[in-house]
Amino acid sequence: MVISARALNRATLARQLLLGREPLDVEEALRRVVALQAQQPASPYIALWNRLRAFDPAQLDAALADRRIVKATLMRLTLHAVRAEDYRSFREAMEPTLRSSRLGDARFRSSGLTAEDADALVAALLRYANRPRGSAELGEWFEKRLGRPLEAGAQRMLRQYAPLWHAPTGGPWSYNTRLSYEAAGAPRPALGNAKAPERGLRALILRYLAGFGPASIADMAQFAMVHRPRVRAAVKTLADEAGGLEQLTGPDGTVLYDMPGALRPEEDTPAPPRLMAMWDSVLLAYADRGRVIPSEYRKHVTRVNGDVLPTLLVDGRVAGVWRATDGGIEASAFHRLPGQVWEELAGEARSLVAFLAGRDPRAYSRYDHWWAKGVLAAETRLLPGD
């Protein structure tokens, strides 16, 4: 079966809860969308505001406080919010990537420590982090343990490698500039078990396909940042199991895989405009990001340092960027938009301004320097909050 580019787009939007806001609780939403990028504390909240009907941010606050949803370094070596019950398999899937990238990093190697030293340190660190520990506490612990100070870069690599959760530190979005860490709750990832990474990767691939499929081997590898041979082997195993995987052909002839019977709406299904969070997963989950971002706009959305700006999603594809200002939402469209689309975006802006008002009316303001440097805009409008 050949699937069109537009049908792929609609499959992604449907599974990512972007064809209509759903009446789900935050844990079920996280199950459906797999994971939410969380480098910026506001992003998981804005991502859920885009996806859930009458979303109350206090629901996510409570889920994070109760550790039903946790924040940790996972896919693509970046911070994600995931369900606590998914953490173990996701972390096991990422073990080889995390180990090679963090313990092979020059900042760690310059400390004079080996990977074997790191294993011993991590085991002891997890015992020490039986309650939230701030960065300064961890620095003091490393110094006492090693008998010398450990460079900040090496500490960072160890913190990112170890199975640690980020403990909430306060408002407005459960986390602030203070950093605090705690050992991942039971059951912890099975570090050192040779079979665990491949078992975890198969689990992650199934979740990825349910939330982002149909997708290619390259897409799966990009989503997690794992080597393609590992993905290819995992997909072969999954395809050979009872029930298997469905195989499709993409518009360019690429082989795509999907869960049997997975949701794939008609390609003419309407897609309402959305004001997407920074680093929203739909922008980053594929090797071929043309599914959501037109190629001519990609460099205007993903900046040279890796920042992924908040975007306008129009008819399911990126059509511009936005930022919060004192007067409302400033929306810059990369191409001219019909009046009806602007009216719909204005409705989204009113809702978003109200959502941000009680917590952080100027969310993402630290990234205003990109606007100062200039953003592509065929048309810019200030969409007021009232």
Rank of each mutant, 00 (worst) to 15 (best):
A363Q: 03
A62S: 13
Q40M: 14
K236C: 10
P272M: 05
A349W: 02
L345Q: 01
R366G: 11
E296T: 13
E140A: 14
V82M: 00
P384M: 12
M276N: 06
G170S: 07
A210Q: 12
S111M: 08
G385N: 02
R131Q: 10
W141E: 05
L201H: 05
H335P: 06
P361F: 03
D252M: 13
L209A: 06
D66A: 10
E246Q: 11
S4W: 10
R99F: 06
H227D: 15
R127A: 13
R188A: 14
E348I: 02
K144I: 10
F223E: 06
A357W: 09
S174T: 13
F142Y: 12
G211H: 04
V34G: 11
A271G: 01
R21T: 07
G185F: 05
D258R: 09
E344H: 12
G20N: 12
S351R: 10
T269A: 10
S281V: 15
A65H: 08
L179H: 15
T254M: 09
L256K: 03
I46P: 04
M278W: 09
A234K: 05
R148S: 06
M225T: 14
A224M: 07
P251D: 13
H300M: 06
P149Y: 05
R178L: 15
V2K: 15
R362K: 13
S43D: 02
A186D: 15
R53V: 14
L77E: 11
Q247E: 14
L126K: 00
R133L: 09
G374R: 07
E95M: 08
M225I: 15
L121T: 02
L64G: 01
A7G: 08
A129M: 11
R232E: 15
L18P: 10
V321G: 02
R188T: 11
R53L: 13
T302K: 14
R317V: 12
P96I: 06
L18H: 01
Y181F: 13
S216R: 03
A319I: 03
V26A: 02
A224R: 00
D386R: 12
R298D: 10
Q16Y: 03
M1Q: 14
V301C: 06
Q160F: 07
P172C: 01
I329K: 02
D105V: 02
Q155K: 12
L30T: 00
L284I: 08
R109Y: 08
P44Y: 11
L24R: 03
A123K: 06
A203W: 08
